[in-house]
């Protein structure tokens, strides 16, 4: 990597930093309870809850920091925070 004059940086390049390693609690998805409201994916500060075409979500454990907002705000308790196994 050479520094450009002015130090400009490429977009979206934080993806190399896998923040999933920060996680203490892990979101566990109960797909059967999910009503596809999309609140979890909208709120996730790390864009790690991704809505699929069918409306269900998948979790991106490479980046999920385990903040628990998705689980706390889920209106149907379809997400449960469980201790991360390392």
């Amino acid at each position: 990597m050479k520094i450009a004059i002015g130090g400009m940086v490429e977009p979206g390049s934080t993806r190399v930093n896998k923040t999933g390693s920060w996680r203490i609690y892990r979101p566990l998805y109960h797909r059967d309870k999910c009503i596809k409201c999309g609140i979890c994916s909208m709120l996730c500060p790390d864009s790690s809850v991704k809505a699929q075409e069918d409306g269900y979500v998948i979790f991106d454990y490479e980046y999920c920091k385990g903040c628990g907002i998705c689980a706390y705000e889920c209106p149907k308790d379809a997400i449960e925070m469980v201790l991360e196994e390392k």
Binding site: P11, G12, S13, T14, R15, V16, N17, K18, T19, W22, P45, D46, S47, S48, D60, E62, Y63, K65, G66, C67, G68, I69
Partner: peptide, 11 residues
Amino acid sequence: LAPGHRGCPGC
């Protein structure tokens, strides 16, 4: 925002 940023959990 792309993931991988250094915000605290729940930022």
